[in-house]
Design a protein around this nucleic acid. Structure first.
Length: 301
DNA sequence: GTACAGGCAGTAT
DNA sequence: ATACTGCCTGTA
């Protein structure tokens, strides 16, 4: 196995925030400003920022209201990337890791993350952003920052009172029903994120998929981006195409012939890749995903 | 106009 | 188990 010396603290906020894991961020001058649950986070990058710098000196982190040390939690700065990448024995991933240094997986608020990815089905990033921004503006709390008003993600109590029509007004379409059902289930404590954090990947996935609107891909995103399941390997149409292109040889049958993704095929492919990439397959997925989106120049915003 | 987009559930086979 | 179809709505 090769070894790659990767500074543990290596972190590129631009790439990490742009990578499509989280939808409520916008670039304002040298800063990124984004919503996570009750907080507005602000990341400011010094002009002189390079990846070799110490994070403490080159990037500043603020939160409104203040929340000490949020960046460590949110950007998973304790993840030892050097260790993680050395468990992934794959030349392509290593190439991408070097090219897109500092991409990290986020640890988002599970409630917001779940609603975000229920909204993500059968649509694109700009529209998902619009839906979620509408939700925040309509039902979140205003937070003043830099002379502008930002909005928190609405609480479950607030959203519980919102009617189906109230959700539809945010442009959720047929997903409104799923979001409503999820909020009801969550309010009844039938989904408990503290428990899911302790569960293993398979058990947590099974529980999430009981919710209408949460299928294979959506559950994998929730698990990877908010519930610490780093072996989760979400497969959307982009990743599916990339797997066909770069990893077809791992399979005993011809992936190229397959057009549609069935439940059983999804499970088979993701399980095989979990086995191939290992404990941190989710990191491999994110680097792969970022690369193909960059190469296809898809809109991140 | 109409095809399609980070999927999913419901129904029929 | 697997295949097929409708779904909201913005964008190309």
């Amino acid at each position: 196995m090769n070894t790659y010396n990767y500074p543990i603290t290596e972190f590129n906020p631009n790439i990490s925030i742009l990578s499509g894991q989280s939808f409520l961020w916008e670039k304002v001058d040298n800063s990124w400003i984004g919503t996570n649950s009750n907080y507005i986070f602000k990341v400011t990058i010094n002009d002189s920022f390079t990846l070799d710098d110490d994070i403490v000196n080159s990037i500043s982190f603020e939160s409104f209201p203040p929340l000490n040390g949020w960046e460590k939690e949110f950007f998973r700065l304790d993840d030892n990337l050097s260790y993680i990448f050395n468990t992934i024995d794959d030349p392509l991933i290593w190439e991408i890791v070097k090219k897109y240094k500092g991409l990290r997986i986020l640890r988002q608020d599970p409630f917001q993350c779940t609603i975000s990815f229920i909204c993500s089905s059968n649509t694109n990033i700009p529209r998902i952003r619009k839906m979620l921004n509408n939700l925040c503006k309509k039902y979140g709390e205003p937070i003043k920052l830099d002379g502008r008003i930002f909005y928190s993600f609405p609480s479950k109590e607030k959203l519980f009172k919102v009617t189906l029509d109230g959700l539809q007004e945010c442009g959720l379409g047929y997903r409104a029903k799923f979001v409503k059902e999820f909020i009801e289930i969550y309010t009844q404590d039938k989904i408990n994120f503290d428990e899911l954090l302790q569960s293993d990947y398979y058990s947590a996935k099974k529980d999430l998929m009981k919710v209408n609107g949460i299928g294979n891909k959506v559950s994998d995103c929730i698990l990877l981006f908010s519930l610490d399941k780093l072996n989760s390997f979400p497969i959307d149409v982009w990743i599916f195409n990339a797997i066909k292109h770069y990893y077809g040889n791992l399979f005993s049958f011809k992936l190229n012939d397959l057009k549609k993704m069935s439940d059983s095929l999804y499970f088979f492919i993701s399980e095989l890749l979990r086995d191939y990439f290992g404990t941190y397959a989710g990191y491999a997925q994110q680097y792969l995903y970022y690369m193909i989106r960059q190469e296809n120049k898809r809109s991140w915003q």
